[in-house]
Design a protein around this nucleic acid. Structure first.
Length: 250
DNA sequence: GGCCAGGCCCCAG
DNA sequence: CTGGGGCATGGC
């Protein structure tokens, strides 16, 4: 029983909107509409969605392991059970998390949407695809700044010029892949970890942002992500989503 | 009206 | 190599 709202709004993707009881986003060139009730019908009729929602990974096994390992995680997992890690497009994830630095999720969403509207393709009235690199070829620093990217503008321009490194990353081991990604201006340790997790499903990845720093300091002062091995990424998602939506566990 | 946001770059020590 | 200031912008 996948936690659809949690999965779509825990900060791993910025593409989805909730409108009434429906969840909508443009995915691979078409508008997808889901509801909690019809979710399983939808994904079983659609291999693209089935893979996007990562239905074949053993989430309940990992949840059991983490719940037994740690009492704080047990609470967050109970409260938000069955968050999945999506299989997203690497270019889209790279850009999204370039925009994420020193920024908040609301504003990341709005920047993401502006990029779609200015450079993407119109799919249906009001709905645009996320732009492919070739669609942004003419983008200039001034233009991107006028959309509100600020200092992140030069990072996106560098990513545009070097987007082909994503082809290498797919073939590389975790450490090498991270180094490859970090060769792009504006991609450091944290953003690289997010790309490896959200686009390449590296479940050993453990992105550390300001929220995770806080929660690690409070609950695990002498530990790092390896405490949660081999499910670092899933633990990270529950800690991040849990601390932001519930606050502390006690 | 400051403070902060899914950080990173750069430069001083 | 480590620490900390600066960075664009806007939601709160």
């Amino acid at each position: 029983m996948l936690n659809l709202e949690g999965t779509l709004f825990c900060g791993q993707t910025f593409a989805w909107k909730k409108i009434g009881l429906t969840y909508q986003a443009v995915l691979e060139g078409r508008l997808v509409t889901l509801t909690d009730d019809s979710f399983y019908d939808s994904i079983h009729q659609d291999p693209v969605l089935y893979h996007y929602f990562d239905m074949d990974w053993d989430y309940s096994g990992a949840e059991s392991y983490l719940s037994t390992l740690d009492p704080h995680l047990a609470i967050y997992i109970q409260n938000h059970k069955s968050l999945h890690i999506l299989n997203q497009d690497p270019w889209e994830v790279m850009v999204s998390f370039l925009l994420s630095q020193n920024n908040n999720i609301k504003r990341i969403r709005s920047l993401y949407e502006r990029l779609c509207q200015h450079y993407g393709s119109l799919i249906e009235p009001m709905w645009y695809s996320f732009p492919r690199p070739h669609q942004m070829k003419s983008a200039t620093d001034a233009q991107l700044r006028s959309l509100g990217l600020g200092f992140r503008s030069v990072y996106l321009l560098d990513a545009l010029q070097n987007h082909h490194v994503l082809d290498l990353v797919a073939e590389q081991d975790l450490m090498t892949a991270k180094q490859t990604l970090m060769s792009i201006r504006g991609i450091g340790e944290k953003v690289a970890s997010c790309i490896l997790l959200f686009a390449f499903h590296q479940m050993r990845s453990f992105p550390v942002d300001t929220w995770i720093k806080k929660v690690m300091k409070q609950y695990y002062p002498n530990l790092d992500g390896t405490y949660f091995a081999p499910y670092e990424a899933l633990a990270q998602q529950y800690l991040f989503h849990g601390i932001r939506s519930d606050g502390g566990t006690s």
